[in-house]
Structures are given as C-alpha cells and as structure tokens.
Design a protein around this nucleic acid. Structure first.
Lengths: 193, 193
DNA sequence: GGTTTGGTGGTATGGTTGTACCACAAAAAC
DNA sequence: GTTTTTGTGGTACAACCATACCACCAAACC
C-alpha cells in the first residue's frame, strides 16, 4: 500500500502498540524496536511517523491524557442519575481505582509517565498540570452543590484520597474492592444524608 | 589503602552516590558509570562491592526503606508531646509531604522505586508491602486512642490522603504548604476536639 | 620471607539502543 | 510517459551499557 495512508490512523496504531508494550514490561523498557515489533511494522516506519523516540513518547503521553479525560467523562455519563452531585463525584473518584486488567495497565503507564515527567525535562508539559486543576475546580463545584462544608478543602482531600488509594492498588498493597469500599465510606462522611 | 577497609562503610558510600545520582536525573538514568563517578571510585570498585547492578539497586532500595522508617520515627520522637495521639498521627503523616530539597529527592526516589517494582520482577520484594501494613496497624491504634469513629477505615483514608498529597507535591501540582494545610484540615475533621 | 588474600585499576567484549543513510516501489502530478 | 512525491524496508553506525577478564600491589599469615 504505497500511498493513501491515513497518518493519524497509523500514528494511533503505533501509539497503541507502545502502550501495550509499556503495559506488559514497564515504560522504561520501551524501545523503538519493541514498539515496532508489537505494532507489526518496521523500525523505519516508527521513525517515519514519529521521527524521534522523544516525540513518540510525547505523543503517547498526550493520547494517554486524552483517554483519561474520556474515561472520566464516560464514567460520569454512564454513572446513573445525570445530575446527582453525589453520584457524579463518586464516579469521577472511582475512576482512579484500577479494577480490571485493562484499567490497571492504563493507570500504571499513566503513573509511570507522571513520575518520569519529574526528572525528564522533555516531559514537563501541560497534561499533568492542567488536568488536576480543572478536576479540583469541578469537584469543588459539585461538592458545593451537594452541600458539603468547606468544599474547596474537601475537594483537595478527595482528590488525594482517590489518588492515594489508586496508587496503593497499583502497588498491590490493597485490593480494588477494599479501595472502593474505603472511598465510599469517606464520601459518606463528607457528604450529608 | 590496600587492606583494612570497612565494607559496610564503602557500600554505604556507594549507595549514597547512587541516591544522589538518582535524585538529580532520575532512577532510570542511573548507570554503573554514573554511580562510580559520583562516588569518586572506579567502576570496578562498584562491581567489587555489589557484583551486579541489580544487587546494587536492591541494596539501595533496602537502605531507602530503612531510612524511611528512621525518618518517621525521628519525626514522631521530635514531634512534641511524647504520647499525644494527635501529635503522633500528624507527625507520621506529614513525613509524606516533601518540604526541603533533600526530602523531595528522597520521596522522589522512593516513589520511582515503588512504581518500578510493579513491573520489575527483581524488585517485587518486601519493603513496599510490609511497611504500609505496619503503618496501617499503628495508625489504627493511635486513632483508637484518639477516640476516632471507625479507626480502621480512617487509618486507610489518612494513609491515602498523605500519599496522595505527597505525590501531588512531587508532581508540582501543589505546594508543600498547601498540602500540609489540607492534611491538618482533614485531621481536624477526623479527630474530635 | 614466601605466599596467600583482599582491594584496586584498566580494559576488552558482546549486546542493545536511537538514529542516519541508502534504496526502491508505486501512486500522483503534469 | 516522465518526474515527483510518499511510504516502506533494510542496514549501518556511533554511543553506551553491564559485565568479564587481566594485572598489580600491599598487607596478613605462617
């Protein structure tokens, strides 16, 4: 097929291969070759569509951030009662707890990227700074609607709880069920009713 | 000095070099050469005292876990009133929030190790599984003494909050002051009085 | 005092990595 | 129908990595 290829599709295909490769053996073990093999293409092709490894990693991170947003939104929409603040809050926070294998892989790579971006100068971009800010504002609004005392502080606490619980599940210190139960318990204490 | 060297001292010296090297450019960028250079010794020496890189990394992780324990204990002892549960709890939890540059580096490497241990089979050891369990039991006891409702669940929540806040400070999403304030706020809500 | 042993340096080696380079085929452009 | 352009493969290369190997020196031992 020597012409007429959808660049975006090809790029997405390769990025997915990177994500799969990273899920099984860690982001640090991802190489141009492993990605190419996983995607079933030649190394040259990966170079052709991404030029350098740095740009490939960056593109994958962007895609990851986008997917994270979609995931949260999907949870909110599918999470039962459309506008009940309590349900919305619970849905958003529970997204941070990896349940099935797919979501575990997703959160693992996301966390690896977050930690990597601390030391890697090329990765100190927006996705990990903008998203939490918007999340905090959103949660504050929902908490206000739900009638919580001190919504601003509670929003930060809730974000921290969900991140902390999610991490502990990732590190196999807790089961997803335990984490979910604890999160629900805490939410019950924060919200009246 | 061709005889008469304290092996433990040499090993500690090299491990500290590794920790320094990891603090500045990330655990993933640590090599035998970088450690040797940082320690001011030859690569051969690093090999001599640790044989393989895997063992060096493992030794550094163990040292890190030990230091973490010391840090917490030191905080508790130096944290004012000897047995006041509230002060003890606050001291323990605040240790997770990196304040100065040294503690930031420490927590960064610790987190990098934790995340790495998820995918690296050689690192799936005890330090990251035993410590949180003991911490949870300890906190539960302190919370009981402080008269909290449902101490067990609150202990898990507190651990998650402190981990989540610490991580957010590491990722530059929040200042250490903000995180500390939020943690104190939440502690005030959990404990009566 | 010879010999064993512990500590050290230097260097070679085999493998892996990211990237640059060369070639080529087929569609598009004119 | 010739000439670009676009997509693709293969491969070469320079750098770097962990580790194995060789040599040496001085203290300890007996």
């Amino acid at each position: 097929m020597p012409k007429l290829v959808d660049h975006e599709e090809r790029r997405a295909h390769i990025i997915d291969a990177l994500l799969r490769s990273a899920a099984s053996s860690g982001l640090h073990s991802v190489t141009m070759r492993s990605v190419a093999t996983e995607a079933g293409v030649s190394v040259r092709l990966v170079q052709y569509y991404f030029d350098t490894k740095e740009q490939l990693l960056l593109a994958a991170m962007t895609r990851l951030a986008t997917r994270m947003g979609e995931r949260v939104q999907h949870r909110v929409r599918a999470g039962g009662a459309g506008t009940d603040p309590r349900a919305v809050i619970e849905a958003v926070l529970l997204e941070a707890v990896p349940t099935d294998e797919e979501s575990r892989a997703f959160h693992l790579i996301y966390t690896e990227y977050a930690v990597l971006s601390v030391t890697d100068p090329a990765l100190g971009g927006q996705p990990f700074l903008a998203a939490p800010d918007k999340m905090e504002a959103f949660l504050t609004a929902q908490l206000t609607a739900a009638g919580a005392a001190d919504p601003r502080q509670e929003a930060v606490v809730l974000l921290a709880v969900s991140a902390g619980l999610g991490l502990s599940v990732l590190l196999d210190q807790r089961t997803a069920e335990d984490a979910t139960a604890v999160l629900r318990y805490h939410l019950g204490r924060v919200l009246p009713g």
